[in-house]
Design a protein around this nucleic acid. Structure first.
Lengths: 343, 343
DNA sequence: TCCAAAAGTTTACGCGTGTAAAAAATAAAT
DNA sequence: ATTTATTTTTTACACGCGTAAACTTTTGGA
């Protein structure tokens, strides 16, 4: 399209016939210049391929157009998926998403935030690790950088939180399970990393007692993010020891349920609703893989799209406003019952 | 730890008692300064928390310490996992990884590379989309930026390629399947995005003919990256139409196999090795979820760790050397047979 | 046609670091 | 102790763009 390589804004100003300060203004906000000027610039942009030097550009800016997106574990399709949606919102709002995964490691989580500091982000969307997070250092970061938490809530951290209403969603599936069969036991990790797990346990106890039943917890030992593995090995143990108080098990999340289903299959236990079935299993999250388990997993979906959109928009509002809200807003979205084959 | 906030290298030089150019040298390579000097600097670094401004730092550098990592689909645990390992290698080599996913979209793939250009990366590790990639623009990028391809090879693109030896791995599992039962048919997507799929088909035909059998292809219609969905719906169709030429099916990849296993389960077909089994199913990749399918999936593993390490090291060598190799090196790692329950 | 408001131009400086060159200081070796 | 090689200091300029101030031009009504 062009011969002479444009190396800086000066040169581009020359070939476009517009002064450099105006070009600069254009790149910071194309709508801030006159339409005729904008046309001229974009005509030149079409003939010559020039893009401002990002480093020079951001050097004098107090804050950039970067938005950090930090999730606890990218290899978990749940987070990969929600990160994907968030990225799209960030992009269409004119920001640049910077995606970082913490691989379940609190030190890496802090490293990620420190690295984000270096690029002076306009804001950060953070799904914290949870219990193992270094809350103090997270708080220090949130004090400096506009931050919205999503997925996992940590008390008073960040300017806002967006997530799922575990009370509602667990209530929904507990009610369903009780209505269609035996009241469920609750299968979870004893010492969960994710704060949602605690909320879900409490919600389970509350809702099952409200229905006049006695709660029963099946607590698996295990650390880390290998939930399927934990679900499988502890599930195998539980099945072998025959200490199931009921034929219905509600899992704290789908990944645990995936492991449990695998354990049940290998133990020869038929899972599902029909007459020949020895077990009913339900999950929580509507994990991308839950529709391909055997049998397909009955679960309650988190509203990925709504959580992604709301948290992004909250951050945009935070950035536009005076960089902090008057009060910390918590938005919880309802889950939706997804009836499949397993319960 | 400190009271006076350090705002730039000048101030840090003052408090550390070392001149600014030497400080600069230290940050570019801590080993390039005298040990005693280094100790002084690190003592100061311990008392005051100063980190160089990344934008000012990279402005005058021809190329930065950034390394781009681009994968076709982050929501695929296979890529998430390999990206995770690569990130670790990049970090421990003193570079900064920048992870980008293309969400299966060739336009986004190009966007990602263009955005990487802006940050002047020292090099890029690219797993291209494959057939749908804009090969011409990829080539233009590779001409400017040191790039090593991994996972999916595209003819003559990039300075090197690191991946799996599909001939070997497919040969391995075909041999196993033939030895332990009926020769397998090959289940794949008719018009696959990923170039590995074509290699695997060819390898299947070659190896099964070498064993004196007739190849049989089961080709599913479908586009995009929803492999499980394609495997499920086409698998269901095939099973219902009873046009299985054999009781053994080798899938082009594990995600397809996951869909097929789900279809078989729902059709009431028992999958596995034993007497009561109507079907044997095998996959390829050793996908993170393949050990939790029902039954667990017999497959052939890709050597994630080796591919990640070799591609990273190749890129480092490329960067250190004169920015290009004399010839394009292709490294293929062997797969390993993973015998589980499904075949 | 004239005039006020809006937008663009000119000029000039600042940001924080890389880096080159010459001079000075230090360390290692004779 | 002297020489020599290495490292550090001093000085100075460059990088590419943001942005402020004063001035000039264009625009859209009245």
């Amino acid at each position: 399209m062009d011969e002479p390589k444009i190396k800086n804004m000066e040169e581009f100003a020359a070939v476009s016939g517009i002064s450099r300060p105006t070009i600069s203004k254009y790149f910071n906000d194309p709508d801030s210049v006159r339409k005729s000027t904008r046309r001229k610039i974009e005509a030149a942009l079409d003939r010559f391929d020039y893009r401002p030097n990002m480093y020079a550009m951001n050097q004098n800016r107090r804050l950039t157009k970067n938005i950090g997106v930090v999730v606890p574990y990218l290899a978990d399709p749940f987070f990969a998926e929600i990160a994907r949606i968030i990225e799209n919102h960030v992009l269409s709002a004119g920001y640049r998403p910077v995606l970082l995964g913490s691989h379940g490691d609190p030190d890496l989580e802090i490293d990620n935030l420190e690295n984000l500091r270096l690029i002076k982000p306009a804001g950060v969307l953070l799904a914290p690790l949870g219990r193992v997070s270094d809350a103090e250092r997270l708080a220090a970061f949130c004090a400096d950088v506009p931050t919205v938490l999503f997925d996992a809530n940590i008390e008073d951290l960040g300017a806002a939180f967006v997530g799922s209403d575990n009370d509602q969603s667990i209530g929904l599936i507990v009610e369903y399970l009780c209505r269609t069969g035996a009241p469920p036991a609750f299968f979870e990790i004893r010492n969960p990393v994710n704060p949602n797990a605690n909320k879900r346990r409490a919600a389970y106890i509350k809702s099952i007692e409200a229905l006049g039943h006695k709660p029963h917890l099946l607590q698996a030992d295990g650390e880390g993010w290998e939930f399927e593995q934990i679900g499988f090995s502890e599930g195998t143990r539980i099945i072998q020891e025959h200490d199931l108080p009921t034929d219905t098990i509600l899992c704290s999340n789908d990944r645990l349920a995936i492991g449990l289903l695998s354990a049940a299959y290998q133990a020869g236990l038929r899972v599902g609703l029909g007459d020949g079935c020895a077990l009913r299993v339900a999950g929580h999250d509507d994990h991308p893989f839950s529709r391909y388990t055997c049998p397909t997993l009955t679960t309650v979906s988190q509203d990925y799209a709504a959580i992604a959109q709301k948290s992004a928009e909250t951050l945009f509002a935070l950035i536009d406003s005076s960089k902090h809200f008057d009060s910390r807003e918590e938005t919880l979205f309802n889950g939706r019952l997804v009836m499949r084959g397993s319960a």
